[in-house]
């Protein structure tokens, strides 16, 4: 879903003169959404900008994507980044077609990562209970 949102936003920005580059890890959704420039990294969702705690890999993924600003001159081009996750165990879970919905219940309550975040937002005036 996020990949779809990004494709729509990229097209809107680009139509108004801002060059964009979309970096993502769901190749089929990027192909369907066809943003102006895209880079695909074959990592599990949640890791589009590199492996956790691996600064060299993060830099390699982000630099590899940003290179597309110089190399892509055909609208809708997608670059496949060479970075490899290593362990492929995540793929079977991600491809599962079992009847399962991992999403959270949908309502309008702000979902704070930590309890203290709520108090911090109240203190700054960003949110009122």
């Amino acid at each position: 879903m996020c990949h779809q949102t990004v494709c729509l936003v990229a097209r809107h920005l680009e139509a108004h003169g801002i060059p964009t580059l979309v970096l993502g890890s769901a190749r089929d959704i990027l192909v369907a959404g066809r943003p102006p420039r895209a880079a695909f990294v074959d990592y599990p969702l949640g890791h589009s900008a590199g492996k956790p705690h691996d600064r060299a890999d993060q830099r390699s993924v982000v630099s590899g994507a940003l290179a597309g600003f110089a190399t892509i001159d055909t609208p809708g081009t997608l670059i496949d980044l060479p970075n490899a996750w290593g362990d492929d165990a995540w793929r079977s879970e991600a491809s599962s077609t079992e009847a399962r919905d991992t999403r959270q219940p949908r309502d309008l309550t702000p979902q704070w990562q930590r309890a203290g975040d709520r108090e911090a937002a109240i203190a700054s005036g960003a949110w009122a209970p």
């Binding site: 879903m1 599990p44 969702l45 949640g46 890791h47 589009s48 900008a49 590199g50 492996k51 956790p52 705690h53 600064r55 993060q58 830099r59 982000v62 630099s63 940003l66 991992t102 999403r103 959270q104 949908r106 702000p110 979902q111 704070w112 990562q113």
Partner: peptide, 27 residues
Amino acid sequence: SHITENYLVDPKQDPDCIFPLGTLRAL
């Protein structure tokens, strides 16, 4: 915070794997 919280396990430990602010500052 995201409707698919299951993808946020690593980003909550190291934001740069999904939100590359530190990576871009280094670049």
